[in-house]
């Protein structure tokens, strides 16, 4: 889904996903929140996980500190 561009900036959909994950929402709710199909959320989680922006825990996916910083960076650019 290209969550992160060549400059290391996150896309708008990635930002929305990371915000939804701040409170540990299940992926099905992240799909509702972002308006994206669940298959795209699952695909994005692999990308966000590989970039260190989110991490899968026993309770589900959560935004990491790096992810929080990326959200702040995206807000600053907006």
């Amino acid at each position: 889904m290209a969550c992160v561009n060549a400059r290391g900036e996150i896309s708008e959909s990635a930002r929305q996903i990371l915000i939804a994950l701040l409170e540990g929402a299940p992926l099905s709710q992240v799909a509702v929140h972002t308006g994206l199909p669940l298959y795209r959320i699952r695909s994005a989680m692999r990308e966000l996980g590989a970039a260190g922006l989110a991490v899968e825990t026993a309770e589900g996916w959560k935004t990491t500190e790096t992810g929080r910083n990326a959200i702040q960076g995206a807000l600053a650019r907006a």
């Binding site: 290209a2 669940l38 298959y39 795209r40 699952r42």
Partner: peptide
């Protein structure tokens, strides 16, 4: 065209 997808990404649908 929507990035890397696996069959398993569609589970539940």
């Amino acid at each position: 065209t929507h990035g890397m997808l696996r069959l398993d990404d569609f589970r539940g649908s």
